[in-house]
Nucleic acid binder design. Structure first.
Length: 169
RNA sequence: ACAGCAGGCCGCCUUAUCGUCCCGAACUUGCUUCGGGAAGGAAAGUCCGGACACCAUAGGGAAGCAUAGCGGCUAACGGCCGUCGUCCCGAACUCGUUUCGGGAUAGGACAAGUGCAACAGAAAGAAUGUACAGGUAAUGCUGUAGUGAAAUCAGGUAAACUCUAUGCGGUGAAAUGCCACGUAAACCUGUGCUCGAGGGUACCCGCCCGAUGCAGGAGGGUAGGCAGAUUGAGCGUGCGGGCAACCGUACGCCUAGAUAAAUGAUAAGGUACCGAACUAGCUUCGGUAACAGAACCCGGCUUAUAGGCCUGCUUUUUUU
RNA sequence: CGGGAUGUAGCGCAGCCUGGUAGCGUACACGUCUGGGGGGCGUGGGGUCGCAAGUUCAAAUCUUGUCAUCCCGA
């Protein structure tokens, strides 16, 4: 990417969008931004999770349970299935009513799961050409901490990525 | 001031970053940018009542269900308000089943029929009798004692069947209308076509629909979108009427619309409460953040609920 | 969202319709038969009848409300 495009991108994401953020390091010399590659990376990665990426079809979910493979890292279990003819990865989240009676608690865990996926789904984008349908099932019986969920999520996604990359070779 | 009871109201706040859904506008038509909006008093339980939709604009019979002093409110109600009776609690005095205050109340009919009443008791509804006293021509004829919740009296009991009065047609947004996609107006068996199978959400009658039909079997297809659906018995304030529930009127406001189901996640600070520590301060440290998540929409009822605020009544203590 | 059922001893159930004594099996304790175990026989303990209110002289039973669990339809 040319230097000018980088500058506009950074301006747009850092200065226009959040006026309150203050980075004197960038202000002095935009070229030094490459030292903060990690930071930049986060801001260039797609963190959105719109309707389009949600798994909704009852048929594919049924199919997923029948034919899909599973990985699990307590307290989260991942059902996944490789699929053709889809534009993006599709994900769904489930919390069984048996373990959480209150609808408020179920919703909260689902929201936290969704958040963990949203912030870490870029891991899967490293594999080109393969798309998946996924369902994340929460198996614990008590309300989890967010950190715990995010750790499990990252491990599962990395495991899936490594496995699929090897298959490609 | 503290405590108790009753009723009503509120029910964490601020900032930052990254997101979700809906509406509007803009253009470079990207799911891009900008602007606006996004859970509750119970959204819960699904216990009543409506609105709305379709089925014969909905008929007759029988059955079933619900309600139950009287009056009012309401779109309607099994709800709410007022009031009378009955029962319970407290206080006062003129001690009366009075007066005042508070609470509870499914509160029509046993003068139509049927049923029921353990134990005790002579006897519990066509069954008669013990002791004492009274009375008679004579007799349980009368009273008291005794049993029991109730003992001869128009007996009690209907949250016993039942009767009376009043109300209720049925099915519920999976209603209903439209669009798109897909085999298949396919196969096998039975039955029927005006002398009519079957259907119209229990039953009978009636009425209507009805032939490429109906019932069963095996094996398949689809399971998407739009409307319904978010402006309404709407909310707020003032004034007027009414004991009150509530009604009228003027002005202002627009306030979620998802559908594998949005309204969030993370961090920091504050606030409130609880606990501990001592330096006893409205310090320090730690913990907790009630119950709970719209699913067609309203009016109630019921249940869950940390903490805080307000009003009224009562008791006790202190001061004037 | 709609419809239906069940809560009684540690466990599994009856009794409720038609109101007055809470029972059966199993488990538990003790005794007995046996050299011992198993098993048989006998005796005994154990119950806020899910909770709350009401009707009644009297409620597991009738009525209303409520809580919990389970099942069915889509």
């Amino acid at each position: 990417m040319p230097r000018e495009e980088w500058q506009t991108l950074i301006r747009k994401t850092i200065f226009t969008k959040n006026n309150n953020l203050y980075f004197p390091f960038f202000q002095r010399d935009l070229a030094s931004a490459k030292f903060c590659g990690v930071f930049l990376y986060i801001y260039t990665v797609n963190q959105k999770f719109p309707k389009k990426e949600k798994l909704k079809s009852a048929k594919t979910i049924e199919n997923l349970f029948l034919e899909g493979k599973t990985h699990s890292k307590f307290p989260v279990k991942l059902f996944f299935l490789q699929k053709e003819n889809i534009e993006t990865n599709l994900a769904a989240f489930a919390v069984p009513k048996r373990n959480f009676k209150s609808a408020v608690d179920r919703n909260r865990v689902k929201r936290q799961l969704r958040e963990a996926y949203r912030l870490n789904k870029h891991i899967l984008e490293e594999i080109r050409g393969k798309k998946f349908v996924m369902l994340f099932l929460f198996m614990g019986k008590v309300k989890p901490h967010y950190i715990q969920l995010e750790e499990a999520m990252v491990k599962l996604l990395k495991k899936l990525r490594d496995e699929m990359s090897q298959d490609k070779d």
